[in-house]
C-alpha cells in the first residue's frame, strides 16, 4: 500500500521510528497591538479602500438600512440567512431575496443577482479583510457568485490582524467546514501584470460596519 510505503520512506529519510513523539514545534511569535476601536475602524477602511473596496459605518439600524438602500438602488440582491441581516431589517429592503434553503434555488437566484449580501464573523483591521465561516445560515456562494458583495459586520467583531484571528480560532474546522478570509475584490494580474478586478469573484466589495 502506498501509504505505508511512503511513511516508511519518510521515516527512513529522517531517521525516526513509528509513533515516536516529536519535540515541540518552535514558538510562533504572534503580535496583537492594543488599538482603540476608532483606530481599528480607520485602519480597516483605509486598507479596504486601497484594495478598491469601500467601508460604510452605521450607528443605528436605520442608518444601516439607509446606507444599504443607497447601494442597492434598484439592483437585485440575495441575502444570507444570518440573523443580523434580518434584525437590522436589511432583508426587507426592496429587491432583496433571502431565506433560501436548497442548493438549486440559491444557485438560480444567485445567477440572476447583482449583489450578494452576507454577514461576516470577523473583520481584520490591518488588512481590510473579512472572515466568513460557512454554515447553515451563511452559504459559501453568496459572497462569490454575484458581481457585488456587501458584507455587514458588527463592529465588536473587528479584530486587529491575522495574528489575533489565529489566536481566537486555533481550530476553525471545529466550527465550520470552510473558513474564508476575503481581502478586497477578486483580481488578477495574469495579463502583462496589469490589474483587473472581478475575475471569478465579485469586482466590488462593500463593508457595512454596524
Amino acid at each position: 500500500m502506498s501509504r505505508d510505503f511512503i511513511l516508511h520512506r519518510v521515516r527512513t529519510a529522517v531517521g525516526r521510528r513509528a509513533a515516536q513523539a516529536p519535540a515541540a514545534p518552535p514558538e510562533v511569535e504572534l503580535r496583537v497591538p492594543e488599538l482603540p476601536l476608532e483606530r481599528r475602524i480607520a485602519m480597516f477602511s483605509a486598507a479596504l479602500e486601497k484594495l478598491g473596496g469601500s467601508t460604510l459605518v452605521a450607528a443605528s439600524a436605520e442608518e444601516a438600512r439607509a446606507s444599504a438602500g443607497r447601494l442597492l438602488a434598484g439592483r437585485r440582491a440575495v441575502a444570507s440567512n444570518v440573523p443580523l441581516l434580518a434584525e437590522l431589517g436589511l432583508t426587507a429592503l426592496e429587491g432583496v431575496q433571502s431565506g433560501f434553503s436548497t442548493a438549486l434555488e440559491l444557485r438560480q437566484a444567485l445567477e440572476r443577482a447583482d449583489v450578494g449580501m452576507t454577514g461576516a464573523d470577523y473583520a481584520l483591521a490591518d488588512t481590510g479583510s473579512l472572515v466568513l465561516l460557512s454554515s447553515a445560515f451563511e452559504p459559501r456562494l453568496i459572497s462569490l457568485l454575484p458581481p457585488i458583495h456587501l458584507a455587514v459586520v458588527s463592529r465588536d467583531r473587528l479584530l486587529t490582524n491575522l495574528d489575533e484571528l489565529v489566536k481566537v480560532l486555533p481550530d476553525p474546522a471545529a466550527l465550520t467546514s470552510a473558513l474564508v478570509i476575503i481581502t478586497g475584490p477578486s483580481r488578477t494580474a495574469d495579463i502583462e501584470q496589469i490589474l483587473v478586478r472581478g475575475v471569478h469573484g465579485p469586482r466590488e466589495v462593500h463593508v457595512l460596519l454596524v
Partner: peptide, 21 residues
C-alpha cells in the same frame, strides 16, 4: 500583497443544514 484576496481554510465536506459546498 499583505494577504492574497482569498484564503480558504477547508476542513471537510458540507455539514448538515448547509446549502452549498
Amino acid at each position: 500583497q499583505p494577504l492574497t484576496v482569498y484564503t480558504s481554510l477547508l476542513g471537510g465536506p458540507r455539514r448538515p443544514g448547509e446549502t452549498d459546498g
